[in-house]
Every structure is written in C-alpha cells, then in structure tokens.
Amino acid sequence: MTNSPDNNKKGFIPVMLTPFTDSGAVDFDALASLTEFYLEAGAAGLFANCLSSEMFELEEDERIQIINQVVKVTNGAVPVVATGTFGGPIEEQADFVKEVYDTGVQAVIAITGLLAGSNEPNAIFNNRVEQLLQLTDSVPLGFYECPVPYKRLLGAEQLKQFVASGRVIYHKDTCLDIEQVKAKIAATQNYPAFGLYDAYLVHAVESLKAGSAGLSCIQGNYFPELIVWLCNNYNNQALVEQVQLVQQFLTDNMDVMHNVYPTVSKYYLQQRGVNISTFTRRDVGPFTSQNKQEVELLFHNYERLQQQIGLTSVL
C-alpha cells in the first residue's frame, strides 16, 4: 500500500469476496483459489475482511481465519490489509486490531462509521482515532469510508492530521466527489508511505491522474485484469482511445455491477470459470432472471471490450 501519490505507478487493491459453500459455510479452498485469481490478474495488494467479504455476517473467529488464509496463500507476494474495527468500546476495538495485525497483514483498517455515531461531531471521531492509535502500539492503520452502518467521510485536513502521525498508511475513499479526492491527495502528498485508493470508478482515470495511489473497487470482482490494465495505462498517450473505452465501459455498467451485489459478482465469476458458489450471507434481495440476463450481457460486452483493447483474461 506504500505508494507515493505522485508516482506514475498505480496499484489495484481488490476488495475481496468471501466464497461460501451452498450450505453457507466459509469455503476456504475456494478462498485460496480466489486469492490466486486476484494475484494472477496483477493485484498490487489485497483487502480482506471488508464489506465485499460480507464482514458483518462473519463470526469473529471466521474473520481471523479468512485473513489468515489470504495471508498464507499470498505468502508475501503483495501486502494484505484487513478490517479490524467492528464497534463497541474503543479498548475492545483496539484488542481486535492487534489480533488482526498478528495475522501478518501490512495494515489494519478502521471503519470510519464505527468510530463515531452519525450524530457525533468530528471532535469525538478524532478523539476516538487518537485513542485507537495510543492503544494499538505501532500497528499501521488505514481508513475505510464504508457505507455501512453509515458513510462517514473524512475531510482533507482531517485525513492529513492522522497521516502526519506516521501510523496511517492507507485510505479507501468513497466520497464519490473528484474535487474532494483531489483535496485529500493534495493534503497528504508529502507523506510517501501513505496511499489513497479510490473506490468510485466513474472518475477512475481522473483520480489516477490527480495522484491517487490506485483503485480499490468492486469491479475487481468481475474483471480484475481490466482494473490492473487501467492502473497501468491510464496515462499512456499511445492508448488514449482505449483508456476512454474502458472508462466509459465502467461508467455505463455501474448499476448492473452494484445491483444485488455481491451475489451478482459471484454469478459473473462463475461465467468466467471461477469455482465459487453464489451463496451470500448478506441479504441483498432476490437474484432474478433479469439480473442473470444483465450479467450475461455484461460478460458478452466485456469480451468485446477485451478485443478492442487487446487484453487477455487470466482465465
């Protein structure tokens, strides 16, 4: 995750899915295969135990087991980050942060919406973060502006305050506002150990050009090699038209990829030949025949896009 914001080399950090068996148990064999799939696609790191992983539907021991599996399969090839705060007294959150760090991750991610309530001011949030930093020794931390339980966004100067501590090295941004993204990048540009990763691909190219460290998005659970390609080629003057095609494709298909997610992405991966059940513990609504048709059309359109830009799938 350590990537200088003004470095032209960008990274893609997949927000990992959790494969389950059809009966609902964590499928650790499928998780190992899925981890290898991300790595073969060229991922620069992995974000385990996140919202896409259905982290709120996992038991605490399952969270640790999943992170352990990802770290084991990755075997140091790329850094791994994982969520370590799930509400409650800050002392308990700090204890779990340290337990997650002991698995071998590079940084432990704090959910912004679980460090202060939606009706609590920034002063309380900031104080809780300071407490968390004090209670977790030298553990490197990151922030995730997770939409659940509510989306708490950080301001540019607020983020800089924590990055300046030397302890915060990662931020997954979900503000959906390119001007806010640019402000956060500008405020933290003098801290090379820190990286901001944008989740919103409608402005993916603009975000990369502005200096984000890379992308961390659900689209990587459909075609991770495409997001890697974009991170590698967003500023390639010989591929301007192809980059525009990719950006438009991602924008045009945003709704399809978000609807009944993550069930929809697991079905898409099945079409690609990935061994994964569509079972999800998270209640995202029914996966209808119309959803299937939309995914199948997305699969067809992606194959056509690959031909247009000369990209080969990992499967």
Rank of each mutant, 00 (worst) to 15 (best):
E206H: 12
A187E: 07
I185E: 00
F223T: 07
G195H: 04
A199I: 05
I218Q: 13
L153Y: 10
A210M: 09
V205R: 14
L215R: 01
L154F: 01
I169K: 07
A183T: 10
V168D: 00
L196Y: 06
G220A: 06
K184Y: 10
D198A: 13
K184P: 06
A183V: 09
L153K: 11
A156M: 01
C175T: 13
G220L: 03
H203R: 10
E157A: 02
A156L: 01
D198F: 14
Q219D: 07
T174R: 08
V168R: 00
A186H: 13
A204T: 05
V163N: 06
G214P: 09
Y170K: 01
V163R: 05
F194M: 12
G155C: 02
L201C: 11
V163G: 07
A187H: 09
Y200G: 12
G166W: 05
S207C: 03
K172V: 08
G211A: 04
E179Y: 13
G211L: 04
L153M: 10
L201R: 04
D177Q: 08
V181E: 05
K184R: 14
F162H: 01
K209I: 01
E206Q: 15
G220Q: 03
A210Y: 06
D177L: 10
F162V: 02
E206Y: 11
D198K: 10
H171M: 11
A210G: 15
L176T: 05
Q161V: 01
G214F: 07
T188S: 14
L154K: 01
G195P: 06
L196S: 11
L176W: 07
Q158K: 11
L176I: 05
N190T: 12
I218D: 04
E179D: 14
L196N: 08
V163P: 03
K160I: 12
D173R: 02
Q158I: 02
Q161K: 14
P192Q: 12
S165D: 07
T188L: 09
S207N: 03
L153F: 10
A193T: 13
Q219V: 02
F223I: 06
A164M: 00
T174C: 14
I185F: 03
I185C: 03
Q158A: 08
F162G: 03
A164V: 00
S165M: 12
Q180K: 15
E206M: 13
Q180G: 11
G155I: 02
I178A: 09
L201F: 07
V205T: 15
S207L: 04
S207Q: 01
L176K: 11
S216K: 01
L176C: 10
I178L: 14
G211D: 02
I185K: 00
R167P: 04
A210F: 09
A186F: 12
V202Q: 06
I218K: 12
L201M: 09
A164G: 00
A156D: 03
E206C: 12
V163A: 09
E179N: 15
T174K: 08
G214V: 08
A199K: 05
K184C: 13
G211V: 04
R167K: 15
A193C: 09
A164Y: 00
K182S: 11
L201P: 04
G214K: 05
Q189P: 02
L208W: 04
Q189K: 15
A183L: 10
I169D: 05
F223M: 06
V163Y: 07
